[in-house]
Design a protein around this nucleic acid. Structure first.
Length: 387
RNA sequence: GCGUGGAUGGCAGAGCGGUCAAUUGCAUGUGGCUGUAAACCACACGCCUUCGGGCUACGGGGGUUCGAAUCCCUCUCCACGCACCA
């Protein structure tokens, strides 16, 4: 990722929800010396999305200012298998899997961070060596009610749902990371606030050091719900320029400024007076440029307009091959991967969702003579070409 | 350990002997209106079908009945209450 120029002021204010115990304290420390900060992540297989990017970009800014950034993988958590959300019964990961996930994570994070300047660590290195007596010592730094005060636990108990002891104790282990690495600052999303504060307390008791905590706001998904893979409302870091652009154009209007603030460096004032669609176009180009390039962003915009404004075919269409010269429309739709079953394919066709060479075909039993270059379309945005 | 209540489609959650492929909400898909925005409207949303219908499904297994998601037995799992915590 290209160099970004930053100031301490921006770094400590933009895309920042809160700095504890105080912004001023952190600022003066940063002016005094190089600080050590970290972000902790779980080595579960993840596709990083724009939400993750908010934190990573924050780290990058610290890097640009010359501070030491550590990327910490929670290999310990991964090996044991964090049981929170018991119905999901998270499987403990194998060592090989963890390695693979870490590599994948690094690759994606490398789109934002300068990996040559990033230290990578694993908390399994120290947590797995932690003796019971040491662990109890850590535990004695907190009272049960301190650990139980979190909203999620309170809510669960109110509802009569269970709170597992290991869930209660996990923050302690995570907090101990701060001590083990002797850091000055931890960065994370607001959802990590509690855990980060545990680390702050431990760092004070163990190393008599002020560990600062910086939280970044959580980015909402394209539809305004929590950004999550299961909602299908994410923009992934590894998305192609085209995909990224298209997704961003489907962003809900009322989230435009939210995205401007959290995902790029353009000041929201620049957007004032722009029509929502145009603001979004600007936003999409800006973000695509960040992860790809200016040229690709322009190209994506052109392509987008071609397909959705002018209703032309995209310039690149996935291709399918069939051995048969003719088949029913239902079979064709199935071959194209537009439907998961014949019933679904028929449904799609009957509802007028299928076009063959731009003409709507609504009879599932039509025999289609395949021709080279024939384009099948489902809905507005799924295309396939016969070769 | 004892007792009580549960297990239904992607999720939530009705149904409690036939009219149930299963009400409803959310999510999703297609069409309409648009700016691939939102909101809104319409339709669809198990699988197969020669579009008549057929098949498989309400935690697993067994039974009662002409007929079961619905009743009985049993197994598995879950929640809650009590007991244990000397």
């Amino acid at each position: 990722m290209k160099k970004v120029s930053v100031s301490i002021g921006d770094t400590l204010s933009k895309q920042v929800e809160e700095i504890l115990p105080s912004r001023e304290g952190l600022e003066s420390l940063m002016k005094k010396r190089k600080i050590r900060l970290y972000l902790g992540v779980d080595p579960t297989g993840v596709n990083l999305h724009l939400g993750h990017a908010v934190v990573l970009r924050k780290l990058r800014q610290f890097q640009e200012l010359g501070h030491e950034v550590i990327l910490l993988f929670g290999t310990f958590t991964g090996l044991i298998g964090d049981p929170s959300g018991r119905d999901k019964a998270r499987e403990p990961l194998s060592l090989a899997q963890i390695r693979k996930n870490m590599a994948a994570y690094k690759k994606q994070a490398g789109k934002i961070l300068d990996l040559s300047k990033t230290k990578v660590k694993c908390n399994g290195d120290w947590l797995s060596k932690l003796k019971p007596e040491e662990f109890l010592k850590i535990a004695s730094c907190f009272t049960a009610s301190q650990l139980l005060e979190r909203d999620m636990f309170q809510n669960r108990m109110k509802k009569g749902a269970e709170v597992w002891v290991n869930e209660l104790l996990y923050p302690l282990l995570q907090g101990y990371d701060s001590v083990a690495m002797d850091v000055d600052l931890e960065v994370g999303g607001t959802d990590q606030m509690f855990n980060m504060l545990i680390g702050r307390r431990l760092q004070k008791l163990y190393n008599d050091k002020e560990k600062y905590v910086l939280t970044t706001p959580l980015l909402l998904g394209l539809d305004g719900r929590k950004m999550s893979k299961s909602y299908g409302n994410t923009v992934n870091i590894l998305d192609s320029a085209q995909e990224m652009y298209g997704k961003l154009m489907s962003l809900r209007d009322d989230l435009i400024s939210h995205y401007f603030e959290l995902c790029c460096e353009v000041s929201p004032q620049e957007m004032e007076g722009l029509a929502p669609r145009d603001a979004k176009e600007r936003l999409a180009k800006e973000i695509v440029t960040l992860f790809h390039s200016k040229a690709l962003a322009e190209k994506a915009a052109q392509e987008f307009n071609q397909v959705f404004r002018e209703k032309k075919n995209p310039s690149r269409i996935p291709e399918i091959q069939t051995t048969r010269a003719s088949l029913t429309l239902t079979e064709l739709v199935l071959e194209a991967g537009f439907a998961s079953s014949k019933s679904a394919a028929r449904r799609l066709i009957k509802q007028g969702g299928i076009r063959v060479d731009k003409r709507v075909e609504d009879n599932p039993n039509t025999l289609v003579q395949l021709k080279k270059g024939m384009v099948i379309q489902a809905g507005k945005r799924r295309f396939v070409k016969v070769v």
